[in-house]
């Protein structure tokens, strides 16, 4: 199972990077979100396969799943959501400034 998860994370990452490098600015944003998803999946997989029961104290029947990575992902999801929204607004501003959403026409970093 680890191999499958690792491969899935690898593919997700590759897709994210590839999307990030597109000329279309919206695709770059999508790429960023996919990268964040890959990272969340990675965090999840570090805690997986230990327990099968949700991490509630009231669950006394089985092995509880690892709560720590879950809490970390929770934080990571929120932060990456905030970050994505912020990046989106920056991308929007770049589009508004250069009157284009084509990354190849944006060369203002030079000046």
């Amino acid at each position: 199972m680890e191999l499958l998860t690792a491969i899935a994370i690898g593919i997700l990452f590759a897709i994210g990077v590839f999307q990030l490098l597109r000329r279309n600015i919206i695709r770059s944003a999508i790429g960023l979100i996919i990268l964040a998803n890959a990272v969340n999946l990675f965090l999840l997989s570090t805690g997986a396969y230990i327990g099968v029961e949700p991490a509630y104290v009231s669950n006394t029947t089985g092995v509880l799943s690892d709560a720590l990575p879950q809490a970390l992902i929770l934080t990571a999801i929120v932060i990456s959501m905030g970050g994505t929204a912020f990046v989106l607004s920056m991308l929007y501003i770049i589009s508004a400034r250069y009157k284009t959403s084509d990354m190849d026409e944006i060369d203002g970093l030079k000046n």
Binding site: A6, I9, G10, I11, A14, I15, V17
Partner: peptide, 9 residues
Amino acid sequence: SGVMVMLIT
């Protein structure tokens, strides 16, 4: 980079 991340994972 995908392969790299896979190996790290």
